[in-house]
Each structure stands twice: as C-alpha cells, then as structure tokens.
Computed example of a mutant assay.
Amino acid sequence: MTRVVFVLLPEVHLLDLAGPAQVFAGADGFGQPYTLDYVAERPQVLSAEGLPLVARTDWPVLGRDDLIMVPGWRGPVLRDGPVLHASAVERLRAHHAAGGTIASVCAGADALGQAGMLDGRRCTTHHQLQDELAARYPRATVVRDVLFTTDDRVVTSAGIASGIDLALHLLAARHGPALAARVARDMVVYARRNGNAPQASAMLRHRSHLDDTVHRVQSLIDTHYAEPLPLSRLAAHAGVSARTLTRLFAKATDGLTPLRYQQALRLERAEHLISQGTTVESAAREVGFEDARMLRRLRR
C-alpha cells in the first residue's frame, strides 16, 4: 500500500489537487493500492474556487515509498502566497532525507522552496511564475517551458493540469507504462505527455487574440492539420480574400502565416509521437508530411 499525502494550503486550486488525486485513485482501482491523505494546518481549507475542503491536522506515518505532494494555490505572485508551516517544512525535509519523494504542482514549488528542497536542484512551475521562482530561490535551476522536472526525488510540475502528467509519470516510473496508460485511458486523458513537452501548445500560444475571422481559420486548421490546406480554401472558409487573410492572420498571431501555424501543429504532434517511440519517418507521415525531410528541418 502506497500512501500519498497532499498538503493543502489556503486557496488551493481544485484541479491542482483533484487531477493527481484522481490518477492515484485510478491506480488503486486497477489493483495497485494507494491510500490518499489530505493534511493541513487547520481542519478546513477554503479552495481558490470557493469549495471548503476537509483535512486532517495530524500526519500519517510515512515510508520511503510514500509520496508527499503540494498542490498550488491562487495568486498572481508567489510572494503573496501562503507560508508553509514549520511542522510541514520539517515533514518534507525528513521524508526526503529518509528516501521519500516530494512533489509539487504549479505554485506548490514555492512551498518546496520554503523548505529548502529546491536548492541545487532543477525545478519548474507555471510559466507566469518562473521568473519570480528563480528570483526567490537563486540556488535552484528553474527549467522553463517544460511540463515537469525530476531531480533527486524532488518532482515539480508546471501549471494546473500538468499535475496529471506528473502523476501519470510517477505511476509509469513506479509500476510501468502500461498501468499509467490504463489510468490515462480511464480518465479520458488525450495522452500522457513527457516532461519536456511545452507548457503551452501551439493552439494555446496563438489563440489569445480577439479576431473572429482568424479564429475560424485556426479552428479549421486545428481539425485538419494533417491535410493539405491551400490558402484559397482557408480564405473561402473565412469569407475573405487570400491577401486579407494573410494580413489578419499575421497581425493576430505575431507574424505567423496560416502555413506556419499548420506546421507548428504538425511539429508538435510529431514530437509527441516520436517521444512515444514512433520513428521520425512514421511520425512525418502521420502528421501529413510527404516525407521526413521537412520534419527534420523543422525539428532543427
């Protein structure tokens, strides 16, 4: 029986907590027993979304195979976040010293920093908090634009939903990729992403604008990125001329053309396939390239 202790701090984000909790509960349902505990300084913690959570104030006895995880909390800056209680600091340090694993999701990395767990180690957090994390803990090596890092049994993940990727990674490392795949499939998670995957996909990076015409074209590309999509077809779909579409698209996406956007989607999907063991040639065909030469150029 493996025990996972979630340390709940004020205004904890529900998905930071619920995502990993669902992963480990799912593993228990597939015959790999896990017990989940929720520990806080007080018996009730108000989440960032307003839902009160009940927690225990005493810590269970932990072995070296058990895990302590600190979910993140609401706040635009880390300096205004909660302070980790001295007893929790000692628990984290003692568990790691005994051979246990410590993990965090999103802003939870700051709690690990308060406990001195980031010093001399690689770590990450939400992309909006990385600069501040690096400034607060100069002895840490903050790795940018990755989903999670592992360094000497200290595991940190990026923003919110990346906690699911981190938990699936821990399952795969402990029990093999087959169990992680079964849990991911049961959760209807698209795929288990590796730690080096970017925090924000191409779809997210280039869709924060307010141009409805460009959004319509991007939606078509998102759905059919593996198919040939001539500019004339995209322009007709948007109801504008090819020249107008090119101008609007570049303005909304910081200089991208529709073709470059499509290539970014293809490259991102190909990188995922390659990380899962697919050959470069097969990945190129899967995402719509006629051969692997263009994919190799884009990867360089």
Rank of each mutant, 00 (worst) to 15 (best):
62 L>V: 11
100 G>C: 03
48 A>T: 02
22 Q>H: 11
98 A>Q: 11
83 V>K: 04
298 L>F: 12
20 P>E: 00
39 V>R: 12
24 F>Y: 10
116 G>T: 04
235 A>R: 01
283 A>Q: 05
21 A>L: 10
121 R>S: 10
280 V>G: 06
144 R>G: 09
134 A>T: 04
155 V>T: 03
91 R>A: 05
164 I>G: 03
84 L>R: 02
105 V>A: 03
222 D>E: 15
35 T>Q: 15
118 L>W: 01
119 D>E: 14
79 R>E: 09
36 L>T: 08
151 D>N: 08
238 A>L: 02
103 A>K: 02
191 A>F: 02
292 A>M: 10
126 H>G: 13
215 H>T: 13
244 T>G: 08
3 R>W: 02
175 H>Y: 10
11 E>G: 04
299 R>H: 11
84 L>K: 02
256 L>N: 01
133 L>I: 06
165 D>E: 12
298 L>D: 06
61 V>C: 10
14 L>S: 08
253 T>G: 13
205 R>Y: 12
206 H>T: 12
174 R>I: 00
59 W>G: 01
149 T>M: 11
28 D>G: 15
237 H>W: 10
81 G>F: 00
142 V>D: 04
240 V>Y: 03
255 G>S: 14
235 A>H: 04
139 R>C: 13
143 V>Q: 05
89 V>H: 08
186 D>P: 01
252 A>V: 11
115 A>V: 02
195 G>L: 08
248 L>Y: 09
173 A>L: 04
261 Y>I: 06
12 V>N: 01
262 Q>W: 05
126 H>M: 09
177 P>W: 00
4 V>Q: 01
218 Q>M: 15
222 D>I: 09
242 A>D: 14
20 P>M: 07
232 S>F: 06
7 V>D: 00
115 A>Q: 00
34 Y>V: 12
128 Q>F: 12
276 Q>C: 12
279 T>C: 10
236 A>W: 00
39 V>Q: 08
58 D>P: 00
104 S>P: 04
277 G>N: 09
153 R>K: 09
220 L>Q: 10
237 H>T: 13
145 D>E: 15
291 D>P: 12
129 L>P: 06
261 Y>N: 05
8 L>F: 08
180 A>D: 01
21 A>Y: 04
262 Q>M: 10
118 L>R: 03
